[in-house]
């Protein structure tokens, strides 16, 4: 048990977390959630459902057609339809309804994905292995198709699976998504969204079609979710249970930590969230004897910490790190 080992290990883990494709997918999903919740005040508690729709739409299409771009289109169209299906009945109503319907719908998507009935497409509980849909993406890579590449302690394949190629694409997408969200929310369109977040009746009285704006917001944020879903499963595999309620809650924690209604909040928050998580896992693993907490129980403890952390964050610093208390995304 060597402290030096603990620290090298910790900082190596920090680095790989910051490079990680999963982290990138969280940032993208959180940007979408920011458009929903941060800027429009839509309480979408089913962002994981959007990710799952994107993941299934992409993976199933590519699995059967081996056409990458068709997969992306299907994923995005799926997310739009999902947003419309959830938005049309609820967006004219009080916010709670959207919350209930989105959390429920995300759960339903997961249950359907897990169900044996559609197993020929979804793989049921086993999901869809990455190898079934990742080849067309790899084929787009300018990097060597095979082989590993090492930078410092980080040794990943050039192109296959959870690769450098995927990392480059994922983090470029993060940059693009941040740029898009910046352009959108700083525009007059974004101003209307912020108005709606404050008081939709006031905005209505000024001649804006609030329902259309809310629908647009739900769709756009959902598209970010679908993209995040694609990125996420390209690094791993499609598994319905990996994108459940808990993932949405994590995304809220990321967003609120960084600061809702800020452009860089999702990025900063996601980094911090993962660093804290990695720190907790490494530290508990190192310092707490396994007779007290088994390896299996460490994630459970970290989830408890995440839950309590989310509570404390919302209570004591709802504006997050970058946010402005006066411009709080929470209505009332």
């Amino acid at each position: 048990m060597d402290i030096g080992f603990y620290f090298t290990n910790l900082f190596t883990d920090f680095g790989s977390t910051i490079l990680s494709v999963i982290t990138a997918s969280y940032v993208i999903a959180a940007i979408g959630l920011n458009i929903h919740f941060g800027f429009t005040g839509l309480l979408n508690i089913g962002q994981a459902g959007f990710m799952l729709i994107g993941a299934y739409g992409f993976a199933i299409t590519v699995r059967f057609t081996q056409n990458f771009w068709l997969g992306v289109v299907v994923a995005l169209v799926g997310a739009v339809l999902f947003a419309l299906a959830l938005g049309l009945p609820t967006l004219k109503l009080r916010g709670d309804y959207l919350a209930i319907v989105t959390i429920a719908a995300a759960e339903i998507v997961r249950l359907i994905g897990d169900n044996q009935l559609l197993a020929p497409f979804t793989g049921g509980t086993f999901g869809i292995p990455g190898s079934a849909f990742s080849k067309p993406f790899a084929a787009l890579s300018p990097l060597p198709q095979i082989g590993l590449f090492q930078i410092g302690p980080y040794n990943y394949p050039f192109t296959e699976g959870d690769s450098w190629w995927l990392r480059i694409v994922a983090w470029s997408l993060v940059a693009v998504c941040i740029a898009i969200s910046f352009l959108l929310v700083r525009s007059p369109w974004g101003r209307v969204l912020r108005g709606i977040r404050e008081d939709e009746d006031a905005v209505r009285s000024l001649g804006k079609n609030v329902t259309v704006y809310k629908t647009q917001s739900l769709v756009i944020g959902g598209l970010f979710g679908a993209v995040a879903g694609i990125v996420n499963v390209l690094a791993t595999s499609v598994s319905a249970d990996a994108m459940g309620r808990t993932l949405t809650f994590e995304l809220y924690t990321c967003l609120l930590l960084g600061g809702a209604a800020t452009v860089f909040g999702p990025l900063l928050g996601t980094f911090l969230y993962w660093l804290v998580l990695v720190f907790l896992r490494d530290s508990i693993g190192f310092w707490v004897p396994s007779s007290v907490l088994s390896q299996q129980q460490i994630p459970q403890v970290t989830w408890i910490v995440v839950g309590i952390g989310l509570m404390l964050l919302v209570i004591f610093r709802p504006q997050g790190i970058l946010g402005n208390k006066k411009e709080l995304a929470f209505g009332d």
């Binding site: 989830w303 408890i304 309590i308």
Partner: peptide, 15 residues
């Protein structure tokens, strides 16, 4: 606010 409280209940539920 109520939305804040609601997110607090979500955190509690997770924990």
């Amino acid at each position: 606010g109520l939305t804040q409280l609601m997110v607090v209940t979500i955190g509690l539920s997770l924990a």
